[in-house]
Design a protein around this nucleic acid. Sequence first.
RNA 1: GGCCCCGUAGCUCAGUUGGAUAGAGCAUCAGCCUUCUAAGCUGAGGGUCGCGCGUUCGAAUCGCGCCGGGGUCACCA
Length: 564
Amino acid sequence: MKNELKKLVDRILPEILSELSPEQPIDPKKIDYDVDLPKVKGHGDLSINLGFQLSRMLKKAPFEIATHCLRIIEKKMKVDADWQKWVKSVTVAKPGFLNFKLVENSAAGFLIDMAKADAAYGKSEFGKGKRVLIEFVSANPTGPLTIAHGRQAALGDTLARILNAVGFKADKEFYLNDAGRQIRLLGESIWARFCELSGKPYAFPEEGYKGTYLIDIARELKEQFGESLLSKKSAEAIDTARQFGVTKILDSIKKDLADMRIVFDNYFSEKSLYERKVVEEVIERLRAKQLVFEAEGAVWFRSTDFGDDKDRVLRKSTGENTYLAPDIAYHSVKFGRGYERLVNLWGPDHHGYVPRLKAACQALGYSKDQIDVLIVQLTTLYRDGVPVRMSTRAGEFVTLRELMDEVGVDATRFFFLMRKVDSHLDFDLELAKKQSDENPVYYLQYAHARISSILAYANRPDEQVDDLMKADLSRIIEPEEINLIKKMSEFPEALVQAATNLEPYRIVDYLRELAASFHKFYALHRVVSDDPSLTQARLLLTHCVRLVLRNGLTVLGVSAPKKM
RNA sequence: GGCCCCGUAGCUCAGUUGGAUAGAGCAUCAGCCUUCUAAGCUGAGGGUCGCGCGUUCGAAUCGCGCCGGGGUCACCA
């Protein structure tokens, strides 16, 4: 709808410009004006801010310019069929807006396009097939996923769905920290539990993992390998315990994710970076560029060359790598695999790490614009208005699994997506569970179920819409109906906005508005009536609303129930 | 102390990238079901957009300076 008006205005823009500034020609391409929905009711259907945009250039008051534009437009409207088809009247308002009232059912034609496109409605080629890699969760496989991982998981997965919907080729990747100290500790912890179960004395590692889930894993380990492990050398036994543990824990992580409707395209092993000597290679590449130096017995990366506030250690004086070294290698591999753009979702504790990584990517010859790091802020769970303490101590609410079990997958995903990524999220457990009007998830799902109920009442098989296409669109004239069509026509743009800003919550907001428009329509008008042609037109309308709701919910990974 | 995020209605948050009279939901109060789902709709009250200065025709939005809350500043991962 906005696009249609923009096209019409663009067509007469040169004329406007030459008339306003006859001696100094202005390039129409340089004029950047917006078509918007007026904020104030009674100002028509759409408005443009052309007057303001031109006022600076022409050094004239916005109102004066807008009035001038109006005269030209009115002249055009008398002779141009396209203008007549869309625009009913134009007015100039106070500071300098041009407000357009559209022909009542000019928009109804969109319904046909939507119904035809069906599940594809909303999709676009905006991303031009550009390959994007979204890396998220990336938890150490040392324990169950937490609430924090859950928010990242919901966001990362939904971002991938959004990007793919608008024509990017986005893949989801889980970086598996299966090397290093934490994993070693995991092996030792399991081994300690194993010894405990077997009555063999073994000191529990100081910073080991004390979670009770490791006792279960140790028990399984014992069932599978038996006491024979005890006779092996302890390094070998710990190695077995470690491998066994990682596999078990990773399986349960994958299970949690699958239950949350998330399947990763790839799990990338940190260990493989060492096995394939990529870490060495990358350090050498940086060294060749004079960006690596030795000091105090350690190997450093000169990240200050790229705006970091200090240089960073790649290899400690002990000979061990820091986390940064394999991370640079990993990102080099990501680019090497053909991704033009990388999106990482990290926790707030990593934000200081961003300049380091961007510096590294620039050092390797990539632009810092090719990598986006989204810092996913913390989530606080509330029960009865009181924050739920989250610590690893027994009995306290920590895992994603527990959350999903308590409130369900739909509410879990929805609540995680509801807020902007970089703001703290208050997750009200009672609210998420409530099957009532207070719960925002149900507001959307209810609209979908309501429409399904109407279509069922009208005896309509879901797939069959051919006869609806023949509906008499001139019957659609009510403001609530026009409003619905207007909203629906914005869906493709909402997806593009969400994709370019990497902000899934925009889709949540969009769908809430659409559902609200529908509920308002429903309260005032009947769909199925004894007027066959009106009924048919409104069935087409509601069919389309359901389709957009469903497409939107699909992008969020939330189910669209036909009955509630 | 440096850097990052936040500060908008009693609470939780939007504010379409600088536009018109700052909006939703919850909570409070008052209404609406003999007809397609009341998990819904309509209305009322509720605001110094943390404070100040600046840029602009125009600022919740941009800049600078304060105030307040949270996070982070390792040869940890």
